[in-house]
Nucleic acid binder design. Sequence first.
RNA 1: GGUCCGUUCGUCUAGGGGUUAGGACGCAUCCCUUUCACGGAUGAAACACGGGUUCGAUUCCCGUACGGACUACCA
Length: 512
Amino acid sequence: MTQEVRVRFAPSPTGPLHIGGVRTALYNYLFAHKMGGKFIIRIEDTDQSRFVPGAEDYIRESLDWLGIQADESPWTSGEVGPYRQSERKADYMQYAVELVEKGHAYYAFDTPEELEAMRERLTAARVVQPQYNNITRTQMKNSLTLPAGEVQRRLESGDPYVIRVKIPRQEEVRLKDLIRGWVVVHTSTLDDKVLMKSDGMPTYHLANIVDDHLMGITHVIRGEEWLPSAPLHVLLYKYLGWKDSMPEFAHLPLLLKPDGNGKLSKRDGDKLGFPVFPIDWENQKDGASAPGFREQGYLPDALLNFLAFLGWNPGDDRELFTKDELIEAFSLERIGKSGTKFDIEKAKWYNEQYLKNMDNEVLAEFIIADAAKDGFELSKELATAAAALNKERVTFPQELWPASKLLVIAPQSFDEKIASKRWNQDAIKVLNQYISRLGDFEAGFNPESAKEELAAAAEAEEIKMGKVMQAVRLAVTGSGAGPDLMRVFSILGKDEVIKRIEFALSELTSID
RNA sequence: GGUCCGUUCGUCUAGGGGUUAGGACGCAUCCCUUUCACGGAUGAAACACGGGUUCGAUUCCCGUACGGACUACCA
């Protein structure tokens, strides 16, 4: 019997969703769809002190923008909700108590000061790893060392306590990671992690295991930072009697800084000038902000495609994949083992590829909107033509309007360097000849005829057209570089071209 | 420091006991072209190091080096 695949993405609402988190969500999403299973989003908000207002909405909006929809989440319905851990609070304690009763956990009453003192003592004694473990717990205040009566009294009187897992002394924990193979850890290196905090909330470790079990999760696909605590999770599944239904694990390689070493962080983005968050973020409390890919002009499908290839590849040379194609090609086996440096240049390349494949009509909307901000009202026809003219020349949609301005605004000034090099008598003669011919021109004005007329004008003056093209471009656009001139002429229309040339002729003085 | 994970061009990667070690981004040159860009072609550029196993190792094994993660009543 094969059970339905169920995977989850479980972010904490402690700030903006990091781009690495987005990739984790994407891999979960792709795997779920590939396997015909379900993708679940669960909000892990068990740390009240780090809760950031707006963070959950941010997560939702980000994934929404990228089209990473959940089958079950706090914002949709589902059979195994609630999907917010703070709303599942009542569930966790019973499992923690069950562990205590089974002898796999215990109550600990140590104050933060006492814990600190313990660590200092251990450090002073040259213990390399000062931790609360199977050795040190014998000297601390917990239900293992205190008389049963006192434990009972403290519990009843409301003394603050936590519940810690009781890690066995000498045991090997083995777990099979889908990406890394067998990982073996000795329990002597593990510490007695807190399962229930003194505020009555579970820690990640407990909540995660309980919820994954209750929600029927079959595959845990998460970042490599969780690998060290995975043995603890395996132990918990065992102690809770859930070993047979324990999910499979796949720990993803991390996203690294583009330069130097280390994990990709917000600072890297600031320093190198690119976003590390999907969409713009502003902290409602402290006003801290961070730029997002969306606002920078990255297209969702392009970003998705780029992200998918950070640590995964289909095994052949194809690089451009729609979301459906990604789902079809995706497999956990083809995820790499090593960390991946973040290369923004590749992201830009993906954006260019997607941008030039977009419909001109769609791109026209960007141009119309941006032009409106500058006070220009563009027709759909003009904007569409502008999109076709420029979409292969830019990286981001917002570059389209600036690139298209020359179609709307006649040049007021002219590039001096080009003028001083190209504005000569030959150019002036050809231009005069051209506008006079254009004045009489009755047939359809299009790129071909515009060029034919220009060629004829040049020929009449016995001047090679190529020699004066730069000057012609300068006269009509004010610049020495730009899109195909004859297409520009065609969009501008005959009358506007004549007007602009006349203006240039009156403004510029010849170099010879 | 300890535990765990990793290491193919600058970057993302394919490959795998015998290959001219393949592709992509970026870079350079050339072509196309009225310019810039697009596109096309070409080029520079990699198996971390040392042992072993083997007829043969970049590929398998062991070390070393280097990198990373973790080492909280955070996730």
